[in-house]
Design a protein around this nucleic acid. Structure first.
Lengths: 253, 253
DNA sequence: TTAGTTTCGTGAACACCATTAACGGTAAAC
DNA sequence: GTTTACCGTTAATGGTGTTCACGAAACTAA
């Protein structure tokens, strides 16, 4: 939430700094395995709990704030890892990013649950808006767009789509960097939704532990899911190369 | 957890009854949108909270107990709905069951999260064992086994599988009715895991709301995921019929 | 510089929560 | 009929989010 614009007055600067400290302290608490609570955050900042209400309206809002920043920070690490491949190799970048995403979800299940398994009621428009801004979503859609530009994989025409879906891809409520995608190419977003659903599925299953631990450890379920998506993304000819990259990532300590 | 064996003494009968009341009251609380808490459950039973410690060791254990029974009860409703198709039509039954599973997850997101998104640590062997007993898992694997008996879809041989996966399908830690599946056919369980991962993915995505509400409402993401799995399950020739059944279920109020 | 206003923190209080300990009554077991 | 085990109680500890009234400090304006 920090640095939306240049800090004007001194007070505003201080306020921004406090916001930053709140999410930093929260992240540290989670990292240490402690529960995220207003009291704990406040205590560690040398304040009392009610003081935090000058910055957030409720505990849930604190959670949302922290979730947003965690997502941002985590995405930065995947992006950094992926950037060992050149900008004109988005397929390799996506492969790495997906693997790192999973790795993060397995290493920090609590944080993952906070960001990606946090229930969002249909009616809650405010939290929905925050969700739409999710950095990870933008990063992944952007990579997929770049892959399409390079490999021109097939996607459904707008007329083929269910009317509701058509509406949804033309005016997306999901985190998607879609402004620069021409209207007639918006069928791409349908592919994106489906791919995201598949990725989200395995990773959530593994991160929450609703799965045989040996299967998680082996990474085979994740691997198979990713490989299944190479074809629809027009990456058939890249299969061998990307599989090697994927296996290399999975072998990481 | 009730009625594992015939109630012997009067005291044991009473104890069983109390257990039943605990989960019944818990289920009602969740149904009413209230939070599940020891105090609330106890109060509604005309007891004080500490008394519940004669029946459960901790709050988490209460949650697990309730989760297990919720899973059992929910599975019974899917099975009941699916039983409108004959026993020798497992493909239709699975179609209905999947749709009802999703419907339940959307109608009762809190219950769904309790049962299927409840984080289970790797080390926690006790909760893991309870998970292995999950009724829904057994129901789904059994349906898939019946489908295989009928349609003989291809599945990987044990030698093709990753060694770790081979171990996992030979001695499953997941909820799977696998005793009657011959050793050489255990590759089937790999198909099951992959299918379950896909189903779990969409349903969790929709149930937690991390998705465009319009897309959820339309059911298209779920529909597409299910249809993608007809082919691997040898149901190509049943496609039209099963699609009709699926659409009928999705159109339900 | 002084007076007024906004902002940001405090402490006390309320209503919850899980959990533990010591204690009593009642029902089964011997 | 005595003993034992079970099942509930009350009291207390330390945790949670949240509200309210208050005060001090900082910025604003005459």
């Amino acid at each position: 939430m920090a640095h939306l614009r240049a800090p004007a007055t001194r007070r505003e600067r201080q306020r921004e700094a406090t916001y930053d400290e709140i999410v930093a302290v929260s992240a540290r608490l989670l990292e240490e395995g402690a529960d995220l609570s207003l009291r704990a955050v406040a205590a560690r900042m040398g304040m009392t709990a009610p003081a935090l209400y000058r910055y957030v309206n409720s505990y849930q809002q604190l959670v949302d704030l922290v979730a947003f920043e965690l997502d941002k920070a985590a995405t930065a690490t995947w992006a950094e890892a992926a950037s060992r491949f050149s900008e004109d190799d988005p397929a390799a970048r996506l492969t790495v990013a997906c693997a790192r995403f999973r790795q993060w979800a397995l290493a920090r299940p609590r944080e993952f649950a906070l960001v990606f398994a946090n229930p969002i009621a249909e009616a809650d428009t405010e939290r929905r808006e925050l969700l739409t801004l999710a950095t990870s979503g933008h990063y992944f859609t952007d990579l997929m767009w770049q892959i399409w530009e390079l490999y021109q994989f097939p996607y459904p025409a707008l007329e083929e789509l269910d009317p509701v879906i058509r509406e949804a891809v033309l005016d997306p409520l999901i985190p998607a960097k879609s402004d620069h995608i021409p209207t007639e190419d918006r069928g791409l977003l349908w592919i994106y939704m489906r791919a995201w659903s598949a990725l989200y599925g395995v990773v959530t299953l593994e991160s929450t532990g609703h799965c045989d631990p040996r299967v998680i450890e082996s990474g085979q379920l994740f691997r198979a899911t990713i490989l299944d998506w190479l074809e629809p993304l027009g990456l058939r000819h890249e299969r061998a190369r990307l599989t090697a990259i994927l296996d290399e990532e999975l072998a990481r300590p």
